[in-house]
């Protein structure tokens, strides 16, 4: 496996791709808008502004769904286009093995997911810095924030992996994006239906891939206070994401899903002719 060759090729392809610049710019604009709106609401509501660090981490990281979804779409565009342009086929003709081509595309998943996640953190911190004033804080990142950070990163990675599966299996950007969003809706509907059934079905409902990844990005997963608040907001119709399971279990399940999705993608890709 010529990893350096693969990484060099993918970086040339990705950074020169207009879709990459457009997606990153769109995410940045959306995050600026969301954080800006939150800041204005804080100013109007409390007369202050956005909270400073470390209190701001909860608000920042709770938005990890956004870079997660953008990462999934960007991965679909980067992966599926290789098939519609037939460059996947040409790469193999030129000398890559199918395994190397797959690995090259797989390298994009963590790179894009973590890259967009860091964009969320950077823009969120930018809005949080004025809120710190000159106040002394013991730690900018508390243990609970560190856990939330890790979980949110894993959420982005998981969502990007679902995008990777759609792009690799459907092999056409438009339909793959459609199927991705359809899956998100179906996963959430199924979760809602199973939640109402109770018992084992409830456990299954709260363990579906999208719900599992989403839960990792929510403060309620790590903070009993936030959980109680979420339960209070939800009332009797308590959705799965406010049902705290052991974080270790959720992380393990998410990791298992990521490995399973990547393995299934590879098996399907390997079997297909280019």
């Amino acid at each position: 496996m010529r990893l350096a060759v693969l990484v060099r090729s993918e970086s040339i392809k990705t950074f020169r791709r207009p879709a990459f610049a457009v997606t990153v710019a769109a995410l940045a604009a959306l995050l600026l808008l969301v954080f800006g709106a939150m800041h204005v609401r804080s100013v109007i509501g409390s007369g202050g502004g956005s909270p400073g660090l470390p209190n701001a981490w909860a608000n920042i990281l709770d938005l990890a769904d956004l870079p997660g979804v953008f990462a999934a779409i960007l991965i679909i565009l980067l992966v599926a286009s290789e098939f519609s342009w037939r460059t996947a086929r040409q790469n193999v003709i030129d000398g890559l093995t199918k395994g190397e081509f797959f690995a090259a595309k797989l390298c994009l998943v963590p790179a894009v997911a973590i890259g967009l996640y860091l964009a969320l953190v950077a823009i969120g911190v930018m809005f949080a810095l004025p809120g710190m004033g000159g106040h002394h804080v013991d730690a900018l990142v508390r243990p609970i924030d560190a856990m939330h950070m890790g979980g949110a990163a894993l959420e982005c990675l998981g969502m990007a992996t679902i995008g990777f599966f759609c792009g690799m299996v459907i092999q056409s950007p438009g339909p793959a994006t459609g199927v991705f969003f359809l899956y998100v809706v179906v996963d959430q509907l199924l979760e809602a239906v199973l939640q109402g059934a109770g018992g084992v079905a409830r456990t299954v409902g709260s363990s579906l891939p999208w719900g599992t990844f989403t839960r990792l990005g929510k403060r309620a997963q790590y903070d009993p206070g936030a959980l109680a608040q979420a339960i209070g907001h939800a009332g009797s119709a308590r959705p799965a994401h406010v049902t705290m399971s052991s974080t270790t279990e959720v992380v393990a399940l998410a990791a298992l899903y990521i490995v399973a999705i990547v393995s299934l993608s590879y098996l399907i890709f390997r079997k297909r002719d280019l």
Binding site: R8, W85, N91, D94
Partner: peptide, 19 residues
């Protein structure tokens, strides 16, 4: 079969990288 958004030179760079 080449990347439409890349120049002729960059497309050949990718092939050269593999070969």
């Amino acid at each position: 079969n080449f990347y439409p958004y890349l120049s002729g030179w960059d497309n050949l760079r990718l092939v050269a990288n593999i070969k």
